[in-house]
Amino acid sequence: MNAALLDVKSVSKSFGGVQANQNVSMQVPEGRITGLIGPNGSGKTTLFNSIVGYHPIDGGSIRFEDREISKLRVQQIARLGLLRTFQQTRIYSKMDCVKNMLISVPHRNATFSDMFKPYPPDLTEKAEHLLEFVGLYQKRHLVSGDLSFGQQKLLEFAMALMNEPRVLLLDEPTAGINPTLINGLIDRLKLANTEFGITLFVIEHNMRVIMNLADSIYCLAHGELLAHGSPDEIQGDQRVIDAYLGAH
């Protein structure tokens, strides 16, 4: 197996006296769906934030496509094609859905003069196509802040696809979504992986979802890596069960 697309090596991060991540290593192989689980407060989101450059790490290394990115800034990392969505969904709430999509085009090669150009019509087409993909086509001209929370999550996902990332880090994509819609979302995540070729790295609390979705799963507890394996292995791992049930 060749080197992982995203390679996290012994990353540590503490906030004051709280050790949020300690010596965490994991690999996200290209073209796959990797899961990240762990009880509340186990450091999952902190790890995501470290990867996308939201805060500096105390030690270790984070490599993306064999390039050290732990010293880069948020925007630089995003422009490399490493994108994250937020646990508390974040969209541009005063703009309509299509505009939310248009501003999400990749900014990788944006030059100075690009700033003052109008959007070509095929971009609008692409935006509408992706909105259709997540099931928001009918609402595309509504102000996004008026959408329900679940719809905003779908919009955020569509915006991420618009950005054509290499790796997409999803922080609890199904949290707050109507259970009847979750199956549809799982299908779309899988499609994004197979059809658009986007590598996914997913934090998820819903076990049914993550076991269905991921090829391999990492489990964090108390900021440390507890277990790694296929969904079946993780499901049978006594340490994981103990961590969730608080048997320490």
């Binding site: 948020v74 925007q75 937020f86 974040r90 541009y92 505009k99 501003i103 915006m159």
Partner: peptide, 25 residues
């Protein structure tokens, strides 16, 4: 009416999100 307008509106609505999406804020 250009991309510029959308970009600064995005900064207004959620600058952190715009950064996370790679906009040259």
């Amino acid at each position: 009416s250009t991309r510029y307008g959308l970009a600064i509106n995005a900064i207004r609505d959620d600058e952190e999100k715009a950064e996370a999406m790679g906009v040259h804020t």
